[in-house]
């Protein structure tokens, strides 16, 4: 955020258009580069959640799958919040193997699939 942005915010003026242009471009390019539609992305999100939900208890409503772009590399980032027990441990689904106990400090599991 620049000084101009802050002044604009204080005066409730529209922000300078360059930042709007940048944000709109980044979003449209992430989709152009991947050829993924929002519906496909949503379907993928559901399926990923279902697979992960077999092993750990996760918040099915909170999970988000998004496209992020940096240096012409587009990453598919899935952010899946894990529910915790009262004593802070990660809730494991009973049939999952005991080796699945993960690091307590991690709040989320992140998966990223990289493509060009």
């Amino acid at each position: 955020m620049t000084l101009r942005d802050i002044i604009n915010k204080l005066l409730r003026r529209q922000p300078a258009s360059a930042s709007t242009a940048r944000e709109r471009l980044q979003l449209v390019l992430a989709h152009d580069r991947s050829d993924l539609s929002t519906e496909l992305l949503d379907q993928m999100r559901k399926e990923i959640l279902e697979v992960v939900a077999k092993y750990v208890e996760i918040d099915m409503d909170e999970g988000a799958v998004s496209l992020e772009t940096e240096d012409r590399m587009t990453a598919l980032v899935a952010n899946l919040p894990i529910k915790r027990t009262l004593n802070g441990k990660i809730k494991l689904i009973e049939h999952a193997s005991q080796e699945q106990e993960s690091d307590n400090s991690s709040e989320n599991t992140e998966q990223s699939i990289k493509n060009q």
């Binding site: 620049t2 300078a16 258009s17 360059a18 242009a21 940048r22 471009l25 390019l29 240096d71």
Partner: peptide, 16 residues
Amino acid sequence: ASQEMLSIDDVTDILA
């Protein structure tokens, strides 16, 4: 300068 046009860095970063 008045940030009403994409900057040089904006374009080179986006297009890499």
